[in-house]
């Protein structure tokens, strides 16, 4: 009876003031909130998108960039399906902090989490400090799944970003689902002949699938 196929948790992280909240607002509500103040703790938004014919629900957890909320924000990494790491292309320090953030993701998030690097505020043409090439190189070196430059102000790439997140997650999930189905079919076929090893495979599948909560 649920009206969506999958539910994914997306967590946005990055230095304070890189525009995480604005990205989320632009995407979910279509507005660019001027004079947005610093997020406190975490913020929560929900948006349903369509991937192909499937309705996908995105739970977007927009975390505070400030150091003092680090403990609460870290606790949200764990259950995330995708982590969007945002930096400000017009602010070199926010880019320099990326390794630090990567370390945090590494230590707190799921190992197979979808990592996406986003350079925000591309509308600030002249003030750009981080060229696109640098960002792309960084994302390649550090095995990000996707790199994008966006602007919450003029909506460049915002929708595309979240669509990409949804699509990639859905594809991953479908792949896993298929595999599970196949395994399950194999299991039911072979269970008639042999009893023992099947259960082990079954267990392996459930473990395989356990990190991605499927809500249906």
């Amino acid at each position: 009876m649920e009206d969506y196929k999958y539910l994914f948790k997306v967590v946005l992280v990055g230095n304070a003031g890189v525009g995480k909240t604005c990205l989320v607002r632009k995407f979910t509500q279509g507005i660019f909130p001027p004079g947005q103040s610093a997020t406190i703790g975490v913020d929560f938004m929900i948006k349903t998108v369509k991937v192909g014919n499937d309705k996908i629900k995105l739970q977007i957890w927009d975390t505070a960039g400030q150091e003092r909320f680090r403990s609460i924000t870290q606790s949200y990494y764990r259950s995330a399906h995708a982590i969007v790491l945002v930096y400000d292309v017009s602010c070199q320090p926010s880019f320099d902090c990326l390794p630090e953030w990567l370390g945090e993701i590494e230590s707190y998030a799921n190992r197979r989490v979808l990592k996406i690097l986003v350079g925000n505020k591309v509308d600030k043409g002249d003030e750009r400090e981080v060229p696109e090439r640098i960002g792309r190189d960084f994302s390649d070196v550090n095995q990000f799944d996707y790199f994008l430059e966006t602007s919450a102000l003029d909506a460049t790439n915002v929708d595309q970003l979240f669509e990409q997140v949804a699509t990639r997650l859905t594809n991953d999930m479908k792949l896993t689902d298929e595999r599970v189905h196949q395994f399950r079919a194999d299991a039911t076929n072979s269970s008639s002949s042999t009893g023992g090893p099947i259960k082990l495979i079954d267990r392996a599948q459930t473990q395989l699938n356990s990190c991605c909560t499927r809500q249906s």
């Binding site: 909130p33 103040s37 997020t39 703790g41 975490v42 913020d43 929560f44 957890w61 505070a64 259950s79």
Partner: peptide, 18 residues
């Protein structure tokens, strides 16, 4: 209860701007 904990924690950090 994971979602509830997540969400209630977020509500605890509600701020007037949001």
């Amino acid at each position: 209860y994971d979602f509830f904990i997540d969400k209630f924690s977020q509500m605890c950090h509600a701020n007037p701007q949001a």
